[in-house]
């Protein structure tokens, strides 16, 4: 017992330590309550109201909810507000989701219309690829990003001509066939 007592710090040190622990406890308690609140908000991302100091994870969730609702423009806008913030892991996810937005718009177009929508597909795919690369630079092990990027490469014009091509017939504009020219991309 006496030995134990000797190990205990002096009264001033004990007081300081107690104060420090109190402070840490207050900090963690606040963090905990905030996390709880934010987790409840995450459970219903459609209802998130965004203000200037909304946590970026909530913005991310809100963007995803917008995308799920088909409101890609708003989703992109939200993703872009948090694109340059936070941890590499977070930025990787944002880049990846942005890339997915572009690619998911490009893929059906490509598969349905093929080279006829060359300009749009080209632009969208180029944007998607850029974002996938950004994601992969942040995390080379992002296998989803690798896979989707490979797909983006597959549908990159000029592709292998599709078997049934009416390239000449329904071309809407001569400019649209030229790579890297604005052709109605986003």
């Amino acid at each position: 017992m006496a030995f134990l007592k000797k190990l205990l710090p002096g009264t001033p040190a004990l007081g300081l330590a107690t104060l420090a622990f109190l402070g840490l406890a207050a900090y963690e308690g606040l963090a905990w309550s905030r996390f709880e609140r934010d987790n409840r908000a995450l459970a219903e991302p459609g209802r998130i109201t965004l203000t200037d100091d909304t946590d970026r994870e909530l913005v991310f969730a809100a963007a995803r909810a917008q995308a799920a609702r088909g409101n890609e423009q708003e989703a992109l806008r939200l993703y872009n507000t948090v694109l340059r913030e936070g941890t590499p892991e977070f930025r990787e996810r944002v880049h990846y989701n942005i890339a997915n937005l572009y690619l998911r718009e490009a893929a059906p177009l490509w598969n349905a219309v093929g080279v006829l929508e060359y300009a749009r597909v080209d632009t969208l795919v180029a944007l998607a690829k850029e974002s996938y690369r950004a994601a992969l630079r942040l995390n080379p092990d992002a296998w989803d990003a690798r896979y989707n990027l490979e797909y983006a490469h597959r549908i990159t014009p000029p592709p292998k001509e599709r078997a049934k091509s009416d390239f000449q017939g329904s071309k809407s504009s001569v400019f649209a066939t030229m790579p890297s020219l604005p052709g109605g991309g986003p």
Partner: peptide, 18 residues
């Protein structure tokens, strides 16, 4: 074929470490 490829889905938001 290109139109048979299933794209990988979006990244999900992370839960806060409450």
């Amino acid at each position: 074929p290109d139109d048979k490829v299933m794209l990988r889905g979006d990244a999900h938001e992370r839960q806060f470490p409450a």
